[in-house]
Structures are given as C-alpha cells and as structure tokens.
Simulated scan of single mutants.
Amino acid sequence: MVFDLADRGIYGFATSERLRFADVDANGHINNGAFLQLLESSRVSYLRAIVRAGLPPFRLVVGRLEIDFRRQMFYPGTATACARLIEAHDRKCLVGHALFDDEENCTAVLKAVMVSLNEETGRSVPFAPAVRTALDRLAASLNGLPT
C-alpha cells in the first residue's frame, strides 16, 4: 500500500508537542533539528504503546531517517506529531511520520527505517514470526492501529 505521509487521515496515533523558545533558531523559526525531536517523540510513543503491545520483547534501532521539510513553524505554539507503520520486512520496518502545525498544515514528513537488532552481536536479525505478523497487520491497516 502507498501512503501520502502528509495526509492526516492515515494516522490513528498522534502526540501533542509543545514548541519551545529554545527550539527557535537565528532565522526566527523552529530549527530543523527540533522537527526531528518532535517526530522522534511520537515515534517512540507509537512503538511503545501500539507496536510492542502484547508482543515478545524485540529491539529496534534507527537505521535511516529521511525528512522533507514543507513549512516553517514559529514559537509559541504546539504541533501534532503523527506516526504509523507503513512497511514491514524480514529485518526492518518503515515508520512514516508527519508534523502538523496549529492550523493543521503539514510542516514535515519523515520516513524512519527501524532495524531489528540482536543486542549481543550488534547485528540485525529477522523478526520473530509473531512480531512480523503483527507488523504486517499494522502496515496494512488504514490508520496504523490494530484492527
């Protein structure tokens, strides 16, 4: 399935994030690094609350981040950070994200490749069958939530 990451309707999971004065850069807008932190907060919450729920423990690490900035954001304000699983593979999954400003404008989209990791060897490993099945279901759902 192909998802338009800028479409708020594909996300069943979101966090409300407060824009901080410390996030403002010399150009007077929210710094691009802060966008990554806001989206990371949503991803971590999504993985904990939705993806790992009811599954045996497994370790994921960031393998790659690809972000497209679409609009500026300004302090003060809040943002809505969304996350959902969009693909599952043997050793990795792809989490899609979007960040929306107070007026519901999409300000950034992000794809995060998350790699399954064996902590003892430090190498990628295939997902356990139960985990892979759950990941496939989340990726196939309309909103990234269990059906």
Rank of each mutant, 00 (worst) to 15 (best):
M1A: 14
M1G: 14
V2S: 13
F3G: 03
D4M: 09
L5G: 01
L5E: 09
A6E: 12
A6V: 04
A6C: 06
I10F: 02
Y11M: 06
G12R: 08
G12C: 06
G12N: 07
T15W: 01
A22V: 10
D23M: 06
D23N: 07
H29P: 08
I30Q: 00
N31C: 04
N32H: 11
G33A: 15
G33P: 01
A34L: 07
F35G: 00
F35H: 06
L36D: 02
L36Q: 07
L36I: 08
Q37V: 12
L38T: 01
L39K: 00
E40T: 12
S41A: 14
S41L: 15
S42I: 05
S42M: 10
R43Q: 11
R43S: 09
S45F: 05
Y46N: 05
L47N: 06
R48S: 13
R48L: 13
I50L: 10
P57I: 11
R59W: 13
R59P: 02
R59A: 13
L60M: 14
V61R: 10
V61C: 06
V62Q: 03
V62G: 02
G63V: 04
L65E: 01
I67A: 13
F69K: 02
R70W: 07
R70I: 07
R71G: 10
R71T: 09
R71N: 14
Q72I: 04
M73A: 12
F74W: 15
Y75S: 07
G77E: 11
T80N: 06
A83K: 02
L85C: 12
L85Y: 00
E87Q: 14
A88R: 02
A88E: 10
H89F: 13
D90Q: 12
K92R: 13
C93F: 03
F100Y: 11
D102S: 15
E104D: 15
E104I: 04
C106Y: 04
C106D: 06
K111W: 10
K111Q: 12
V113E: 13
V113P: 00
V113Y: 00
M114D: 03
S116R: 13
L117P: 03
E119A: 15
G122M: 08
G122T: 08
V125G: 03
A128N: 05
D136P: 01
L138H: 05
L138K: 02
L138W: 05
A139Q: 04
A140T: 05
A140M: 06
S141E: 09
L142T: 12
G144Y: 12
P146Q: 10
T147S: 12
